[in-house]
Write a protein that binds this DNA or RNA. Structure first.
Lengths: 160, 160
DNA sequence: AAAAGATATATGCAAATGCATTAAAATGTC
DNA sequence: GACATTTTAATGCATTTGCATATATCTTTT
């Protein structure tokens, strides 16, 4: 009797691994993907319209900006940005060509190197930020109140 | 006096167009992009591991499945999937080559045509769904409770 | 310390994407 | 109904991505 009850309770929760998600869950999932895709493309459009580099560049430059003079190893940037190894490798190459980052030999590990933002890099990031910020304001902040933001952050935190 | 109060109230809301978003808002935004990027790449990984086509294919096939025998015009699929015009044009070509969709002349508008899912298309979609569903279950449903889902859906609805 | 394995990064090649433009048909205007 | 405008879709070309693999260095094992 108790056993049976336990099983029922368990089956009514949707948190079990690989259990078939109900429609509402699939809907939420789909909406999450759609919304973030459309937000991202709004950002890309805004940056492009302003004649600035794409979002990925901002992402990397921001991380390097935060890292400061110490810089970061490519693999650390991968973790921070979720870029694939080969994508970061090539993005770094482009940023290097643009003069936005520099590459220093890494004393502790001669396989790798340290990437550091240059002053040109800092400058372009500073130029990108208002455009990016405006996109956040228009497409995100303007449509949510403080409670929404708090709840959204908490919920997404469970997924991170 | 009243005027002043009104202005203050207005300035304390963050919903105003282009107002600088506070840190918490930027954080929520960043987390939204990160989480959905990582969810999407989990899905792609799962589909690839199962030897199945990528997510975009599922997306298009699902819409065409829903549309049924009537099919859809490419521009309708664009709206539904958020794919760029040229991307959908080429994705349709690939689906055509794979035999998953067919292309019918459109009587009312001879510029365009109607895309319709084939039985092979239905079949591959049916094969993709359990893999996709498992990814949703593992990476999304398993980490949220019903309230989370409801709230998330509502919040994202404001952004859509 | 040699061998085996793991890690960090780059790269050749094929596929997908973005951009700008084209073509063709539809719609609106006069 | 002729002409300009808009809409639908495709495509050439350059860039970016993904995959598989290569290369060099580091770490572990024996």
């Amino acid at each position: 009797m108790l056993m049976q009850l336990h099983i029922n309770v368990k089956c009514n929760r949707m948190a079990d691994r690989n259990e078939i998600p109900p429609e509402t869950t699939v809907f939420a999932w789909a909406r999450l993907l759609r919304v973030s895709q459309s937000l991202l493309s709004a950002v890309e459009t805004a940056l492009k319209a302003a004649g600035l580099p794409p979002f990925d560049w901002y992402d990397v430059l921001l991380e390097l900006h935060r890292a400061g003079r110490r810089g970061l190893r490519p693999y650390e940037l991968q973790d921070a940005t979720l870029l694939a190894q080969y994508n970061l490798s090539r993005l770094a190459e482009r940023l290097l060509n643009a003069g936005y980052i520099e590459r220093l030999p890494c004393p502790e590990d001669r396989r790798g190197h340290i990437l550091r933002i240059t002053s040109d890099g800092r400058q372009v990031r500073r130029k990108m930020w208002p455009v990016y910020r405006a996109a956040i304001a228009d497409h995100f902040a303007a449509k949510l109140d403080e409670d929404d933001i708090r709840r959204l952050t908490a919920i997404l935190g469970k997924l991170a």
